[in-house]
């Protein structure tokens, strides 16, 4: 079969192509030529010979559908390096509704009737209600972006930073969270996502989610946690520290936990820094539960229980006292 360039597809061209020596016109001609099943069979025999001489290299396949998902993400979320500066630039001209630490604005006006909505947080945590009434508690320094109204086939959001998702069940429209490193797909469930440019951690509180990248995927059930690094296989852990998402649930449950960890959990959930005057304080252990209690109240209670004094100064709490000896 000749094409407009009169390139003849013969075994020599096929060999050149497999070796990576084909010019673009030749690759194009070959691609056209392969549409004929007879030609494809012939090509595959030669390719099989080529493949078999380097067995550990293995056969490659390319998934256009998950590639499209990845492309969508790349297009809608500019690389994290530029993302916040991009948002700040646009926010200066397009702010709709502003309160301390909260930015909401429209981005990417497309031809279709719907625009892309993006929300970014700075110092505060914000609860975002999505078009399907699912909610996301977006932690500090995080961002979420989605198409207004979602679509008919899916509910997709782009996400970076940390967020606690409560997704309403909708069998007809899977809910997908896209992050730089991987994706999370659910029908309806409750889970936490912590995403950076190079890592992703997903913790499931209720229900079941599918976590996937271009090369790996796994189901996660309630009580499980997965962590992914770019290019590495997904690592699953069977226990969850629910205090990690205290920022969203406002619930903390400490069972004989060293104060070092307690303070970490509190610092994560609230925009405060906790300083200790004496490192032995961090060894003291706490057993207590808190539900919708302010950071100040939590620390005062901890102080009373463990004989420590708490001083508040701006957004820093200073803890003083004798502390406890270190115990394994």
């Amino acid at each position: 079969m000749k094409n407009k360039n009169d390139i003849v597809v013969d075994d020599e061209l096929i060999a050149r192509y497999l070796c990576g020596e084909a010019q673009p016109e030749e690759a194009e001609a070959l691609t056209d030529w392969l549409e004929e099943p007879f030609n494809l069979a012939h090509f595959e025999k030669i390719q099989a010979t080529w493949d078999v001489t380097f067995p550990s290299k293995g056969k490659v396949s390319f998934d256009k559908d998950s590639a499209w998902d990845a492309l969508q993400h790349n297009i809608h979320s500019p690389s994290e390096r530029s993302s916040f500066s991009l948002w700040f630039k646009i926010a200066a001209t397009l702010i709709i509704g502003l309160s301390a630490g909260f930015l909401g604005y429209r981005l990417f006006q497309t031809d279709s009737a719907h625009s892309q909505i993006s929300v970014a947080t700075l110092k505060n945590t914000e609860t975002v209600t999505l078009p399907d009434n699912s909610t996301v508690v977006v932690n500090r320094n995080s961002a979420i972006s989605y198409l207004e109204g979602f679509g008919n086939d899916s509910r997709e959001v782009d996400f970076s930073g940390e967020g606690f998702f409560s997704v309403k069940g909708d069998e007809s429209r899977p809910f997908i969270v896209h992050t730089p490193v991987g994706h999370v797909r659910v029908v309806g469930t409750v889970f936490n996502v912590s995403s950076t440019r190079s890592g992703l951690e997903v913790n499931v509180q209720e229900g079941k989610v599918l976590v996937y990248t271009l090369t790996d995927s796994t189901y996660l059930e309630a009580g499980q946690s997965a962590s992914l690094g770019a290019g590495k296989p997904i690592n699953i852990v069977d226990s969850i520290d629910a205090n990690q998402w205290g920022y969203a649930t406002r619930k903390f449950d400490f069972q004989d936990v060293p104060l070092a960890n307690v303070f970490e959990s509190i610092e994560k959930a609230y925009p405060y820094t906790i300083e200790v005057a004496n490192k032995d304080i961090k060894n003291c252990r706490l057993t207590a539960s808190f539900d919708h209690v302010s950071a100040r109240e939590m620390l005062n209670l901890i102080g009373e229980t463990l004989d420590l004094t708490i001083q508040e100064n701006d957004s820093t709490f200073r803890v003083e006292g004798k502390g406890c000896p270190w115990v394994q």
Partner: peptide
């Protein structure tokens, strides 16, 4: 356009770069 051409373009790129990623 993406869906129609993605695989054949990747295969071509793979022959040159010899690395699927």
């Amino acid at each position: 356009v993406f869906i129609s051409h993605y695989e054949s373009l990747c295969r071509y790129a793979y022959t040159i770069l010899k690395n699927a990623e």
